[in-house]
Amino acid sequence: MTKGNDIQVELKEMNSKLAQLPKEMPFDVPDNYFNAVTDNIVEMVLANDFIEQQSANPYTVPEQYFSAFPQKINQKIKEETTVTPTLFSLYPLLRPMQVAAAILIIIIGGFSFLHVPKNSISFQQQLKNIPDEVVREYVAQNDDENLNNNFSINSTYSFNKLSEEEITQFLEEQGWQ
């Protein structure tokens, strides 16, 4: 094997010693390799091709399935966008309504709580409305020393000694309840 002219010229221009070297290949190649390799390669390629054909996908797909597929998908997307919204799909809209309802319930609840008449207040007011004569008469009838001595309509002390039940019963009798 000899070097082509342009290769030699180039090496000489580079002032390279390689220009003087032989281009022999020292490698050993099995006898008859190049005569046999063509047949071997062709046989192998054909065998490979056969194996590939055999192991090809066994499933079949309807004709024009893949070419029609994008259109099919687009149609499905369009259909889905026109469907009546479900309760679940309205969830984002319902949310502010839920908040408003919760606020309303709190306001009504708070208002009701603040304006419910308390029993203790009502009871005191009822006591205030009893005329003094009626009270004195009751005291006289019950002959209670403490009540008689310390009676005052504003005094809570005397009434503390009476049970709420007794007072209620009295008021009922007198038609104040």
Partner: peptide
Amino acid sequence: FTQLVKKYQERLYWHIRRMVVVH
């Protein structure tokens, strides 16, 4: 394909062999 292999096998073989060394 057989003609193509015959035509180029040797050149390509040596191109590869000089890189990988082992036959």
